[in-house]
Design a protein around this nucleic acid. Structure first.
Length: 400
DNA sequence: TCTGGGGTCCTAGGACCC
DNA sequence: TCTGGGGTCCTAGGACCC
């Protein structure tokens, strides 16, 4: 789809948004210096209870997909080489790739390690049509990083995103404005942003199978089925009329709204000691990240997943924001004990802190409280030691 | 040994205030 | 003494995304 008959005007001139998506990113990075793995199915994932994070295209021929349980993936493709993820390397490669994007335009919205939107409106005089820019970018990434990516080119972010999926692997798809509906309407509704398994099933039950079906459904009907918000969102997406502009993240520091950590046990457990110790570890991990980011939060939420995979949450909002390990840990433990679980076997526990605000804006009372019990200063000492000696060196006593 | 870990956003009910 | 609305906060659950 990249080739154009000579002499025809390039239709990408009216489609200045690019969605760049690395092909099988983790698997590509993990194997780029391993010519011995070039013709072998490769799965990136870990642990016995984990899921597939990424699979190369050879492994995908066996039906292996991201988010598939590792046990199933191994069964489907026993000859696959399994590689544990190395997020430091993934992040480093990602940063280099994003640097390439920013050399093309400052208007970059980074979606994740392997995905970004670019607005190239201001770059065409210097670099050519959006299609030309997509080609340039793909060549640069391939030369510098030794991995491939796919690019969708359109006038709206949602269409650009769908176009890049269509371009995979290692290709470019341009969808100019006049071809948007003919591109969108044959697609399955499940392709739309915001439609996952549940919504897709519900829409299918209603006889809405393609994006065109959704487009032809009255807005009110749609909203009754899936809610007011999602209903109008789907209506817009189905007509390619979503007006969302890209939001570059390079601007002023925008703190996360929440930070959390959870952990699946190697085996299900009903042992309160084990569970509470895990809550301490997670509280320590989360507040450590909060202190590094300079934020504090008021609402502590724990998450409990039972052996049968049902999941509940319990939360409590404090009068003042905190970033102190023991504050979060105490709330988490109380929430857990209040459940009164007896022999229930747990698969996972999690701790999350919400309502984050910059630490500097936190009320004076917190400072007084800290001075009283001294825990905040203790946290900071632990953080300093961790920076110098590593996480293994300093842990709460009950984790030793 | 089916089903990770990091997030965001929406909905809905009840409390509470004006 | 029979029942208003609007707004905000809190809690719980759920869907979704990468």
């Amino acid at each position: 789809m990249t080739g154009l008959p000579a002499g025809r005007p390039d239709p990408s001139w009216r489609a200045p948004l690019l969605h760049v998506d690395m092909d099988a990113f983790y698997a590509s990075v993990a194997t780029r210096d391993r010519p011995d793995l070039a013709d072998v199915p490769v799965i990136v994932g870990g642990g016995t209870r984990g899921v597939v994070l990424s699979a190369n295209y050879l492994a995908r021929q066996y039906g292996v997909r991201s988010a598939l349980p590792m046990t199933r993936a191994r069964r489907m493709c026993p000859q696959a080489v399994v590689i544990a993820p190395d997020f430091e390397t993934f992040s480093a490669v990602s940063s280099s790739v994003i640097e390439n994007f920013r050399r093309i335009t400052p208007l970059v919205e980074v979606v994740s390690l392997d995905e970004a939107f670019l607005d190239v409106r201001g770059s065409t005089r210097r670099l050519g049509s959006p299609r030309d820019i997509a080609g340039l970018l793909r060549a640069t990434i391939h030369d510098e990083q030794g991995i491939t990516c796919s690019v969708g080119v359109a006038a709206s972010v949602s269409v650009a995103k769908l176009a890049s999926r269509r371009a995979k692997p290692d290709g470019v798809v341009v969808v100019p404005p006049e071809r948007v509906t003919s591109f969108l309407h044959p697609l399955d509704v499940g392709e739309l942003w915001g439609v996952g398994d549940k919504t897709r099933e519900m829409l299918h039950r209603l006889g809405l199978v393609t994006v065109g079906d959704v487009a032809d459904t009255p807005l009110r009907t749609l909203q009754r089925a899936v809610g007011v918000h999602l209903g109008s969102q789907l209506h817009d997406l189905a007509w390619g009329t979503d007006r969302r502009t890209l939001t570059p993240r390079s601007g002023p520091f925008e703190p996360d709204r929440s930070m959390g950590a959870d952990e699946t046990f190697a085996r299900d457990t009903d042992d309160r000691d084990v569970i509470v110790r895990e809550l301490l570890r997670l509280s320590h991990r989360v507040t450590g990240r909060m202190r590094t980011a300079g934020v504090a939060g008021r609402t502590v939420t724990i998450r409990i997943r039972f052996a049968d995979f049902t999941t509940i949450t319990r939360s409590r909002t404090l009068p003042e924001a905190t970033d102190v390990t023991v504050d979060v840990y105490r709330v988490a433990t109380r929430l857990y004990d209040a459940l009164g679980l007896q022999r229930a076997r747990l698969r996972l526990v999690g701790v999350r802190v919400e309502g984050l605000v910059p630490r500097g804006s936190v009320h004076r009372q917190l400072v007084l409280g800290e001075a009283e019990h001294g825990w905040a200063e203790a946290d900071r000492a632990v953080d300093r030691a961790t920076r110098r000696f590593g996480a293994a060196a300093v842990r709460p006593a009950s984790l030793m």
